[in-house]
Simulated assay, not measured.
Amino acid sequence: MNGTEEIGCCGAYCGTCREYLKTCKGCKPGYLDASRDLSRAKCKMKKCCLTRGHITCGDCGEYESCETIQSFLNHPGYKYGKYKQALEYIRANGHTAFLNTAEHWTGAYGKYPK
């Protein structure tokens, strides 16, 4: 998947997480190769996104009208705004541009080029 397994369906970026693939499996590893059972996943966004073959919810044609992702992104809190910003950036610029930007981050969020 060219590094896109580090982008969560919701827009979270796992690439800078110290626990990614240690204590946190992220939302894609194991489901993509069927070594984990997607039907047992608890996250509605992940089930929908991966079942439809998308990399993120932002890739879906129903993104703007989807109650599941929009209610998630509209939760109060800084991180939800950053997830939305990530998905909007991916929608406008693509996964490769997002990964190129995120590779310089030292935390879960970072700055985007103007």
Rank of each mutant, 00 (worst) to 15 (best):
Thr96Ile: 03
Tyr109Cys: 04
Cys66Ser: 12
Tyr112Trp: 04
Gly107Asn: 00
Lys25Phe: 01
Gln85Ala: 12
Lys114Trp: 01
Glu19Ser: 12
Thr51Ser: 10
Ser65Pro: 13
Gly58Gln: 02
Asp33Met: 07
Tyr13Leu: 00
Gly58Val: 01
Gly3Ile: 05
His95Trp: 06
Lys22Phe: 12
Glu6Pro: 10
Gly110Asn: 01
Gly26Phe: 02
Ile90Met: 06
Asn74Thr: 09
Cys24Gly: 04
Leu99Asp: 01
Cys48Ser: 05
Ile69Cys: 06
Ala86Ser: 11
Ala97Glu: 01
Gly81Arg: 11
Ser71Leu: 10
Ala97Ser: 08
Ala108Cys: 13
Asn74Gln: 12
Leu87Phe: 12
Ile7Asp: 03
Thr106Trp: 00
Glu67Val: 14
Glu67Asn: 14
Thr56Leu: 07
Leu73Pro: 06
Leu21Thr: 12
Thr4Ile: 15
Asp33Glu: 04
Lys114Tyr: 05
Glu6Trp: 14
Gly61Phe: 06
Leu73Met: 14
Lys42Arg: 13
Thr23Glu: 09
Lys82Ser: 15
Asp33Ser: 03
Asn74Pro: 13
Tyr83Trp: 11
Thr51Ala: 08
Thr16Pro: 11
Ala41Glu: 04
Lys22Ala: 10
Asp37Pro: 01
Gly81Ser: 11
Lys46Leu: 09
Thr51Val: 08
Lys114Gln: 01
Cys43Pro: 02
Thr56Ile: 09
Gly8Thr: 05
Thr106Ile: 08
Cys17Phe: 14
Thr106Cys: 04
Ile90Val: 14
Gly53His: 13
Lys42Ser: 04
Gly61Met: 07
Pro76Glu: 13
Lys22Ile: 09
Gly30Leu: 03
Gly53Ala: 14
His54Asp: 12
Tyr20Lys: 02
Thr96Val: 07
Lys82Asp: 11
Leu87Cys: 15
His54Gly: 07
Pro29Glu: 00
Pro76Gln: 11
Leu32Ile: 03
Gly8Met: 07
Arg40Val: 13
Thr16His: 10
Glu19Cys: 07
Tyr78Ala: 11
His75Tyr: 12
Gly110Leu: 00
Ala97Gly: 05
Ala92Arg: 12
Glu64Lys: 12
Cys48Lys: 00
Glu64Tyr: 15
